[in-house]
Design a protein around this nucleic acid. Structure first.
Lengths: 245, 245
DNA sequence: GCACAATGTGTTATATTTACACATTAAATT
DNA sequence: AATTTAATGTGTAAATATAACACATTGTGC
């Protein structure tokens, strides 16, 4: 066996590092960044904050913070969200970790990206202080750091997830019309859908409770209002085994 | 506006931390763990290594290592793989980051989990030194650290991905029969599939090159051999916009 | 040359997805 | 009060995709 190959095969130390290594070897800071989605004026939006680094002066960035030494990752993400929005009970999902060496100008910072879905009606955060801003996803460009890439990764993830799980409801008020729901899907996926097929699909899934209420304040025939029925969504473990490239 | 709410709305410092913070605030070590899948004897297997921590004495764990201060995440995962297997050109995908405070006995270590697919024929690593071991996925239980959870997360991810993208080929030798391919899918998904429908599906996708060769050394009628045709898989951007919970 | 154990193939039934048009309703306007 | 407006609400038929299913063929091993 050639020596070069043998070298490769020499057992190396595993993840089970000893204490001293943990403390001394690594000087890597850890942060969490959140892509916070909201749905308003029939548009999918993202909450951004002005960068305070001179290097990125004037640019928008995602909301994030360093993870505290004794703070779980998910909890850190949750903290950022509740601090910013005052909301609890937020949908939150880890997406990807970005760790390029030079991604942050202040040193080695790797960041765990989350996205979250919030009901924009239920929060009233001050965005007019020019620090925070709801930007339409279509118009998000040129964010600070590698946040553009993080944003796009999270957005693609949302687009995929929303077709597989009923997440959309987290972006809507408790009561919504089917038109609202369709608008939501259309704006997230950036496509047009057939109204009849859309309704048929959702009714057949039996996830909506008919509230026997109507929209008000619409300048046309009002639609019925519905509510998402969590109880009915019991992750019907669909054992799907198709192949679909 | 209530004071408590106002507090929530007060702008906090963003991700753009200053240099000093990066160096002093965080003492979090960063590692990478790889769930290395192989396919052998018609079984899906995972490469494990004996834990060298006394706390987990006798238990198996995933292959991993600390990320070096000036090493990209993906590169670190790649390094672990090529060190262990002597292979390059490996399929590698980041899955999830695990960061519970107490997940590692030696201190705060967060770990980025990857899975990889390797062609077990093309490597010949010494597993008989009792350090490394290929374990059938069905029999993987009770790994060290939180590696059981990491393993299961990565396995579920693989199961999903394999139905959406032609990854399976990375686990097979260059030349394979359709039976091999079906066995692969069946063992990854842990289901039985209909042979005729399976073949129909793959032929219709037009990803296989018929090599006009036959299996040898089989005690029955030999099957034809095929090769995966990367060229033909040009991520036909299927704009699927179904909803399927 | 015969039994064996696998490969290789086609059709039908079912389920899912897509395409498509018109009557209905309440508000706003005249 | 009648009309216009802009939306809601609904069903069916065609096309596509999936699932179920059986028998002839081939090379090996005895």
């Amino acid at each position: 066996m050639p020596e070069a190959l043998v070298k490769h095969l020499t057992p190396k130390k595993s993840i089970s590092v000893v204490q001293s290594e943990v403390q001394n070897t690594n000087r890597i800071a850890l942060s969490v960044d959140c892509v916070i989605f909201g749905f308003d004026e029939n548009k999918l939006k993202v909450l951004l904050i002005r960068s305070d680094l001179t290097k990125y002066k004037g640019k928008w960035s995602l909301l994030g913070d360093l993870v505290k030494p004794n703070e779980d990752l998910d909890r850190a993400a949750y903290r950022i969200l509740s601090q910013r929005t005052g909301l609890d009970d937020i949908y939150l999902e880890q997406v990807h970790t970005f760790g390029d060496i030079k991604r942050h100008p202040a040193g080695r910072v790797i960041t765990v990206a989350y996205y979250s879905l919030i009901n924009i009606q239920h929060h009233k955060l001050q965005t007019h202080d020019n620090e925070l801003h709801w930007e339409e996803v279509k118009h998000v460009t040129d964010l600070a750091f590698d946040h553009q890439e993080i944003f796009e990764t999270c957005y693609r993830r949302l687009q995929k997830r929303i077709q597989e799980h009923p997440l959309g409801f987290n972006l809507l008020p408790k009561k919504f019309s089917l038109r609202d729901l369709q608008n939501l899907y259309e704006s997230i996926l950036d496509i047009k859908m057939d109204r009849r097929n859309f309704r048929k699909k959702f009714f057949s899934m039996d996830l909506l409770t008919d509230l026997d209420e109507m929209e008000t304040d619409v300048p046309h025939r009002p639609g019925k209002l519905y509510q998402f029925n969590f109880r009915k969504y019991e992750k019907k473990k669909k054992i799907w085994s198709g192949i679909d490239f």
